[in-house]
Amino acid sequence: MGFKLLSKLLVYLTASIMAIASPLAFSVDSSGEYPTVSEIPVGEVRLYQIADGVWSHIATQSFDGAVYPSNGLIVRDGDELLLIDTAWGAKNTAALLAEIEKQIGLPVTRAVSTHFHDDRVGGVDVLRAAGVATYASPSTRRLAEVEGNEIPTHSLEGLSSSGDAVRFGPVELFYPGAAHSTDNLIVYVPSASVLYGGCAIYELSRTSAGNVADADLAEWPTSIERIQQHYPEAQFVIPGHGLPGGLDLLKHTTNVVKAHTNRSVVE
């Protein structure tokens, strides 16, 4: 069995187990497998329904001669939608809004960016022009300005110390501490036991640490421990890039980060 097929099978099995364990909360999309990078042309966006009122959005972007996937989250909030992270750029984010209108038909009224990198804030200006209120932590807003990236308009308070959590509509926002970046936030959907790890969490097929220019490698494993301790009931975990899975993604990420750190020390 090929690795790609095995990865998709694991996603399907995880979703099936969740649907059985929580039949009222989960209505997993039966329309197909989780979209992969090879299936999404740059400039297009796919939506994948995880649970009743919960979707991931998947886009792709060219970077350094390669094409990478990027995940975000959409959560229903009454007759409105909360968006977590842009679709990595203005063109993708405009396509995301169009796809949401086509498939869901509810307005996106608020959006949260989970850290300051372009795959999370690139497209904020498109959201703002569409009347979406954009939010991020003060740290993310400051770092985005320093980096020359787009800056969300509103500040999220109460997320300055490791372990801080605040309720934001249908989700809980959690600051686990520094990891992929010093400002990275985690998003949890309690009604569906869905954990969105953003770039602080890796997919299972990833074996290298990737972009760690703004990471705190020493603190990252401790931050992941905080996530595990705060959300032990999480059933569906979405990484910032690639295929979702279960809580095993947290341990896998820790292993990859520690291996990278150990290699760096040896070198």
Rank of each mutant, 00 (worst) to 15 (best):
G240P: 02
N184D: 03
A87R: 01
H260W: 06
T207Y: 14
L83S: 12
E219V: 06
G78P: 06
E147L: 06
G32W: 13
E233S: 09
K91S: 06
G65F: 09
D183C: 00
L83Y: 00
A95C: 05
Y12C: 06
S113F: 04
V75F: 04
T182R: 07
E101P: 15
S137F: 15
P107F: 02
D248E: 07
R142G: 11
N262T: 05
L10I: 08
H154P: 02
L173K: 00
L249G: 02
I40C: 10
F3T: 11
V166Y: 03
V37Y: 06
L73K: 00
G65V: 11
S16Q: 04
D118F: 07
P170K: 07
R141F: 08
V54L: 04
F3V: 09
Q61A: 11
V166S: 08
S191N: 07
S181L: 00
R46S: 13
A259M: 05
E101N: 03
S70Q: 13
T86V: 11
T140C: 10
A192S: 05
P176C: 12
V37R: 09
A90M: 05
P23E: 08
L204T: 06
L10F: 03
A130V: 09
S27A: 08
T222W: 05
R263K: 15
V45E: 14
A218P: 09
F63D: 07
H260S: 06
A259Y: 04
N92Y: 15
R110A: 11
V45H: 03
I186W: 12
L82N: 10
D216N: 05
G122F: 02
L156S: 03
K4T: 04
Y68I: 09
S181R: 00
S160F: 12
S161R: 08
I227R: 01
L9F: 13
L143I: 11
P41S: 13
G2Q: 07
H230N: 05
E80W: 06
V194H: 02
R110L: 04
L83F: 05
S62T: 04
D248G: 07
I84R: 01
L82D: 13
V171G: 04
L249T: 09
Q228A: 13
A144Q: 11
S160H: 14
A136M: 07
E150F: 05
G89C: 07
N71R: 12
Y196K: 01
V37P: 05
A90C: 09
A234K: 14
A19Q: 12
T14S: 12
L217F: 03
L143F: 12
G148I: 06
G43C: 03
A192C: 05
I100V: 11
V45Q: 14
S16V: 05
V45M: 15
M18W: 08
A15G: 08
K258C: 12
A66M: 13
E39F: 03
A234G: 07
R167H: 04
L10V: 09
G89P: 02
P221D: 08
G123T: 01
A111K: 02
I17E: 03
N71V: 11
Y202A: 09
A200L: 05
P41I: 11
E203G: 08
G123A: 02
L250E: 11
I74D: 01
G169K: 10
I100W: 01
A59S: 09
K4E: 14
L97P: 02
H57Q: 09
A90Q: 06
A25Q: 11
S155G: 11
W55P: 01
D214A: 10
S62A: 09
Q49M: 07
